[in-house]
């Protein structure tokens, strides 16, 4: 690796990717290193894909504050992101990829393997078990440490205590458990990254902008797939459904529509998985399941 180790975190707003990066930097600095942590500054909201970054060096001053395009390490907090974002974009040959997934090493490798070391851990299960909430950031720190050794596991305890107070103990537990359970596949040179096309938003030139930056294609936000944000999706039990439309009424995305048979069906393309439809259903016909 280089003098400066560069790490990119992929998560969703509210999942704690930014906190992970912060905790890692605090730990590295406590160990006497030079380190940096920062989010990709943007308007992303709870559920939307977000990125955070770290730079760590043993002694070389870190001067760049630019977003990391060619990371040494990539950490993916949400398995749902693998299909929608090119998380390994720019990941260096011989780098490390750490993924939260319940699918196991072999399957994940077949989906997203490449010329890098791969570590997989079911951080969501660990978090549900220990924290009782699917907040995976501390577990993923454990997996990261196991796969890379960028910091020592013990050094993390104090920053966790400072950050989480009363809840620090269970977070330390989640971290250690992930450290133990993460499975690692070593780097084998020459492996090719799987070809896959990801959605990209075209960037306009200044000449393509309307006068005054006016938008005339009304409702073109429809092309933006908020459905990628969800970690849970609604499933309807037709036996219980009375076709009242209460779910559609209260959906903040206005994405539940009546189908030919009269059932109210959530549009996967937009559904963010908030669970309001399930909660407000009169008859309890809707349940939320992992997306």
């Amino acid at each position: 690796m280089n003098d400066i180790t560069e790490i990119r975190w992929h998560g969703r707003g509210g999942q704690g990717a930014v906190t992970s990066a912060e905790l890692l930097a605090l730990t590295a600095i406590k160990e006497g290193n030079i380190a940096q942590a920062f989010p990709s500054f943007g308007p992303e909201r709870r559920g939307a894909p977000v990125i955070a970054f770290n730079r760590i060096s043993a002694g070389k001053p870190i001067r760049s504050r630019a977003a990391i395009a060619e990371p040494d390490i990539v950490v993916v907090l949400d398995p749902g992101l693998l299909g929608i974002i090119d998380v390994t974009r720019g990941l260096r040959d011989g780098g490390v990829l750490i993924v939260n997934s319940s699918k196991g090493l072999a399957t994940v490798n077949s989906e997203i393997g490449g010329p890098w070391k791969l570590a997989v851990v079911d951080a969501t299960a660990i978090a549900r078990d220990i924290l009782k909430r699917p907040i995976v950031n501390t577990a993923m720190l454990g997996a990261l440490i196991k796969a890379t050794g960028v910091v020592n596991l013990e050094s993390l305890t104090q920053p966790l205590e400072e950050r989480f107070g009363k809840l620090s103990e269970i977070n330390v537990q989640a971290c250690s458990k992930a450290y133990k359970e993460a499975v690692v596949m070593e780097y084998s040179p020459g492996v090719k990254k799987a070809e896959k096309v990801y959605p990209i938003e075209k960037s306009l030139s200044w000449k393509e902008l309307n006068l005054g930056f006016v938008v005339t294609e009304m409702g073109n936000a429809r092309s933006y797939r908020t459905g990628y944000w969800k970690s849970e999706r609604p499933v309807r039990d037709n036996a219980k459904c009375i076709k009242c439309g209460m779910c559609a009424l209260f959906c903040p995305e206005d994405c539940i529509h009546q189908d030919a048979e009269g059932y109210f069906e959530a549009d996967e393309f937009y559904c963010k998985g908030c669970g309001i439809c399930a909660r407000e259903c009169w008859t309890g016909a809707i349940t939320m399941v992992e997306a």
Partner: peptide, 23 residues
């Protein structure tokens, strides 16, 4: 109908400013 007054991410702000400047 048209929408006036969108915000721009870093990816477009420079282009927006240049459009104004050229005008």
């Amino acid at each position: 109908p048209a929408a006036m007054g969108d915000f721009a991410l870093p990816d477009l702000y420079t282009e927006a400013k240049v459009a104004h400047d050229m005008a």
